[in-house]
Simulated assay, not measured.
Amino acid sequence: MATDHEGRKKFLTGARPLKARRDVFSKNSWKVPSGVEIKEVLELIDLTEVAIAEQLRIKTRTIRKWKSGDSHISFANWFCLCWLAGLGPILTEQPKGLP
């Protein structure tokens, strides 16, 4: 079974493209990502949800709410998640792996 690191490497090299909509990565026409899209990006981060919550200065419950769709993620937190996932700066370019 592939490790998380191997899965992330495949994603970043283009072997595993993102399924998320382009507009969740656009600074000009940003749309709030769905819970599924948030889960997809979280899977790319080599940290536990507790560690991610600490980095973002939020509660782990907030991450659970984002994933379930009970709460919307802010652009600032989405930007940070994408950065932690190694997707590059979403303000200046399309993230790696998008078609």
Rank of each mutant, 00 (worst) to 15 (best):
L87R: 09
I63N: 03
P33N: 08
L91Y: 04
N77G: 03
E37N: 06
T60S: 06
S71Y: 14
G97M: 08
R8P: 10
F25Q: 08
W78K: 02
F79C: 07
S68C: 04
G97Q: 04
A15G: 12
V50L: 01
T3L: 09
T92S: 14
H5C: 07
I90L: 12
P89L: 14
W30H: 14
C82Q: 07
F79N: 08
C82W: 05
W83A: 12
W83E: 13
G88S: 08
D23Y: 09
W66K: 03
W66L: 05
K10V: 02
I63T: 01
G69E: 07
G35T: 04
H5F: 03
S71V: 12
L98K: 12
E54L: 02
F75T: 05
V36M: 07
T60E: 05
L84E: 02
T48S: 12
S26Q: 13
L56H: 06
T3H: 01
H72S: 15
K27H: 15
K31F: 00
E37A: 14
Q94A: 15
P33W: 10
L56K: 09
S74H: 07
W78L: 00
E49S: 00
V36G: 02
G86T: 02
E40K: 13
T92R: 11
Q94D: 14
R22C: 12
K9P: 06
P17A: 11
G14V: 10
E40Y: 07
G88K: 11
K27V: 14
I52M: 04
S71W: 03
L56I: 09
C82S: 03
E54V: 01
R61A: 08
R8Q: 10
T92Y: 13
L44F: 07
A51R: 11
C80N: 13
G69K: 08
W66T: 04
G69F: 08
L56F: 06
K96S: 11
P17G: 01
D23H: 09
K39D: 07
R16N: 04
K65Y: 01
G69Q: 03
G14A: 08
S74N: 04
D46H: 06
W30Y: 13
A53N: 06
H72T: 12
I63D: 05
S34P: 05
V32I: 14
A85W: 03
K27F: 13
K96T: 14
A85Q: 03
F25T: 11
L18Q: 12
V50D: 00
K27Q: 15
R57C: 11
Q94R: 15
V36L: 13
C80A: 15
G88W: 12
E43M: 06
L44V: 10
L12S: 05
G88I: 09
L12W: 01
W30F: 15
T3E: 01
K31Y: 11
R22T: 07
P89K: 13
L81I: 05
I58E: 01
E40L: 12
I45A: 02
K27W: 01
M1K: 00
V41L: 08
K59F: 13
A76W: 05
